[in-house]
């Protein structure tokens, strides 16, 4: 479904963030990307939906190279790929419902969206996704007044509103406490298993990786150094990925 071939990314300041990264993501997979901070995980995700432009290589999404898309074609590609973020990135001062509805902007006319005119079907769909992420009854609350875990669930509902084929999750639990982290991961798992959405997720904690990932790729200094099953990451691999001095921290 997603084929990444020799992906390179050089930032304007000369930082070579991704070096010849290649891997495939089959439909329905829950893929987790691990690596130290600054290893290029976030850059990699942002190249997939072109929040960052790519410096070299190809990204084939359902057979189409997305790295050269522009304008309407680019927006249509983005509409098929949902994304959630470490800091949730909800629209401040808006309600949960308005935030979830904003996931449908690509299919709403500019004029209608400025006036906030959403169709009845859109609203019903939004309510359905709010229910799926367990926030029924909170749709009229201000999203920025919710707890971190709830905000992340609103973000998931917003991404689902796009009807995505792929969901990108950029360290979705890095600013949450351990208990909430599991809850959010459970919802991602549910999205993956019940709605059949392919998930690509950046994570820090190996314990979460072992629990949720079908497959793992590891980046180090912008280079893909590991690709395999989470259970195959032994002590040796751990030290290769995270450095000699690293000690594994678990959350339960």
């Amino acid at each position: 479904m997603l084929e990444i071939k020799n992906l390179n990314k050089v930032y304007p300041n000369g930082l070579h963030a991704l070096k010849n990264v290649s891997f495939n993501v089959p439909q329905g997979e829950f893929l987790v990307v691990i690596g130290l901070s600054g290893s290029g995980k976030s850059t990699m995700l942002r190249c997939v939906n072109r929040l960052h432009d790519v410096s070299g290589g190809e990204i084939l999404f359902n057979g189409v190279d997305t790295t050269k898309l522009k304008g309407k074609a680019l927006r249509e590609m983005r509409a098929n790929i949902g994304m959630i973020f470490q800091h949730f990135n909800l629209i401040p001062r808006k309600t949960v419902l308005q935030n979830v509805l904003s996931g449908n902007l690509s299919r709403t006319g500019i004029f209608k969206s400025i006036l906030g005119m959403y169709t009845k079907e859109d609203k019903e769909r939004a309510m359905k996704y709010i229910e799926i992420v367990g926030l029924k009854g909170k749709e009229k609350n201000r999203a920025d007044a919710l707890s971190g875990g709830q905000q992340q669930r609103v973000a998931i509902a917003r991404a689902l509103m796009q009807n995505p084929k792929i969901l990108l999750a950029d360290e979705p639990v890095a600013s949450l406490d351990p208990a909430t982290s599991h809850s959010v991961m459970q919802y991602l798992k549910k999205v993956n298993e019940e709605l059949g959405v392919t998930v690509i997720c950046n994570l820090h904690f190996l314990s979460l990786v072992r629990q949720y990932a079908h497959r793992v790729v590891a980046l180090k200094g912008g280079v893909l150094i590991y690709e395999g099953k989470p259970s195959e990451i032994n002590e040796q691999w751990f030290k290769t990925i995270y450095g000699e001095d690293a000690v594994e921290v678990t959350i339960n």
Binding site: N49, L51, R75, E76, M77, R78, A79, N80, I81, G82, M83, F85, H87, F88, N89, L90, I91, P92, S102, G103, N104, L105, S106, S113, A155, R158, A159, Q162, L168
Partner: peptide, 11 residues
């Protein structure tokens, strides 16, 4: 953040 998120929806 919100700009990035809205961009990612294909808006």
């Amino acid at each position: 953040g919100p700009i990035e998120a809205i961009t990612a929806t294909g808006a």
